[in-house]
Design a protein around this nucleic acid. Structure first.
Lengths: 252, 252
DNA sequence: TATCTTCTGCGTATGGTCTACGCATTAAAG
DNA sequence: CTTTAATGCGTAGACCATACGCAGAAGATA
């Protein structure tokens, strides 16, 4: 196997570890450690995930964990990859790129909503862990045959990915701030607008005041804003794809 | 002044603090504390910003800082707001929404590039600090008279903001990973593709392999991908604005 | 002027964090 | 049976944020 050359991180995540056959049996598996970390994060939030907390969850000592994971950050990366899980149903044979890519974006949102702590794990670099690679495959697959070039396909899925992540972060932050203060998200939103009104009162902020006086006829649908942004992104992609199709049908 | 009702955070950021006229003179100002924090973050990265590090930078004791700032996170918020600085030149009278909004997005990227540590400060909630509010004003101003509704204007600038932030994060992470390993960003990119090739070799990843075999005719321009994504986003917004203009010229 | 009141800076202490190092034990390989 | 490597873990070091309380400074008040 060509698992040489690979950094320790990656080999670990893909299960390409050599036989540790000489010493005593390990009392745990990497999967158990990762699962315990996820459980703590899910139950008590990411700040509660310390090595000692995870270790006590498993009934072992703190330092034992370092026989399974080189560093805490590697554990977090593995937790994210496992918690994200595999991508949704891939693009069906007759399906267009747009619904497939929309489903991809929704999948990100769903995963982040189900495990809100994921958004607080700092991103290390380009996606290389197993599930991340599967999501990458899905996203690229959705854009096959659209006439977009390689760099354009990558940029497009990064665009959707970034939008889903930033929107999920914003809406979850709001919801958690609400829960923390024992109010509904609507109340927190109202309080924000009121605070904004107070601080912008003395200064020249015409566009903000215009916004504040436009009484929003509250859309009940929680996800209307999400779908709005996603629609704009996909519209922008569609403009490019269609212009390619008409100007240069061969896909270059 | 209507500075009652405002949370401590916000009052502090807007300089709406009451007269502390009774006791001894303070030996520092809030601005000095924030500036010292920024200096440490800029020179040694965000993890180096501890209360004791900032205090020693100022020649005072650790606990003295808590007379200026309620908690460390409030200090970080103030640091971000100060480091971001004011937005760029606002939309000129005859200027269209699109170049103005593009400049807004570029401004985000420039600010994040100049102070890369900003991206590691976790976002607390909706923008309420002075410079953040100025950026908000700018963004909304750029969309005045486009026929977009209030929620649509907000969603649009959140979209551009999220894109700029996520793209800056990704490109800076890559650059820092490169610097850390003493390689050029290109080398790190090559290494990533090679690692991806290795791990995807045994499995079924047709779209990724298609991507990997498409030899990218390397675009020299570093920001080509950034401008690609921004162009798609703005195209998507343009589609909506134009459809509004033709269907409903009155702006709803 | 003398006292009161409030605010300052800071010393101490608590309870946490990650992880480097080394040691005794275990179990498979030769 | 010996060799060898891997395991779990105890100890310790170097940090971290911040709660609490105290001595002293200086404006407000009598």
């Amino acid at each position: 196997m060509a698992d040489e050359e690979l950094p320790e991180n990656i080999a670990l995540a893909w299960g390409l570890r050599d036989r540790p056959s000489r010493g005593p049996k390990r009392s745990l598996s990497l999967e158990q450690v990762v699962a315990a970390g996820i459980q703590v994060a899910q139950a008590e939030g990411l700040p509660a995930v310390s090595m000692s907390r995870v270790a006590s969850e498993l009934g072992v000592s703190t330092m034992s964990l370092y026989r399974y994971v080189p560093t805490k950050h590697d554990l977090l990366d593995l937790m994210v990859d496992t918690a994200f899980g595999p991508p949704p149903q891939p693009r069906a044979p007759g399906e267009g790129w747009r619904p497939a890519l929309a489903r991809w974006g929704e999948g990100h949102l769903t995963a982040l909503r189900r495990q809100p702590w994921i958004r607080h794990v700092p991103i290390n670099g380009a996606p290389i862990n197993p599930n991340q690679v599967r999501w990458l495959e899905y996203g690229l697959h959705a854009l096959r045959g659209t006439g977009l070039r390689a760099t354009e396909r990558i940029s497009t899925i990064m665009l959707v990915n970034g939008y889903a992540r930033s929107w999920a972060t914003l809406s979850l932050d709001l919801a958690e701030a609400a829960a923390r203060s024992g109010q509904t998200p609507d109340e927190v939103g109202m309080r924000y607008w009121r605070n904004l009104t107070v601080v912008t009162a003395p200064g020249p902020y015409p566009a903000i005041h215009e916004l504040l006086t436009e009484t929003g006829d509250e859309d009940d649908d929680e996800d209307a804003e999400w779908r709005f942004g996603l629609g704009r992104v996909l519209d922008g992609v569609e403009v490019l794809i269609e212009s390619r199709a008409t100007q240069d049908p061969a896909g270059r």
